[in-house]
Amino acid sequence: MAKRTMPVPAVRYERDANGGELLYRLRFRYCEKGRLAMLSHLEVAHYLERVVRRAELPFAITNGFSPHMRISFGGALPVGVGGTCEIFDLLLYRDVSPEEALGAVRAASVPDLLPYACERIDRRAKAASVAYPKSTYEVVFDRPVASLAVPEAVEVVRKKKTRVLAPADFLIEPPAFAGDTMTLKLVSKDTGSLRPDVLVRAMTAGTDVKVASITRTALAE
């Protein structure tokens, strides 16, 4: 009979004064552009985990039966929507300078999903997924558009259930138009959010305007 061997921890976490694990939190910003805007949130999350492993950063892992990387992601982008300011947070068991960490993850990335900034943040700061509820989207059409009406209600089907959302509840300000571009500012709420692509589809329904791209260009608290 084989002897049961407990997994040997390769690293001993440093402890703070209260005996807690001393971990370092880094926040990365990355872009998701080109054809990779067609990736789902889960696919991007999966990818970023592998980037961190390839970069050989000293990432912390969870305790328990199924240890996994202590990484967390910002608000999800719908499939087909790109981003220039997406974020993910990573907990490290050893302090690494943001410059060094950024260099390592960039070398392990593909060009259309490339981290471009990194900073140290407080371990107790808000989680990446709720840190920035306000998003700005740039919608590029196939032609100049002077204005489009915002419908009063949008029907959303999720998990076979239909919900009716009022865009006014989510729009921070009225959409702005300049040439072929529309700027949308949406806030996500605890009760849910309105996807920009769903709103744009509703706004362009009944017109022959086509959407060339949708990109999240700014995040705000």
């Binding site: 054809r35 990779l36 067609m38 696919e43 592998r50 392990a108 593909v110 060009p111 259309d112």
Partner: peptide
């Protein structure tokens, strides 16, 4: 064929199958 494929992708169930650009 990418420009033509790109226009079709919104109809695909899982676009990731056709994207390429993997690490």
């Amino acid at each position: 064929l990418w420009p033509r494929l790109r226009d079709l992708l919104p109809l695909a169930e899982r676009p990731v199958r056709y994207l390429n650009h993997e690490f």
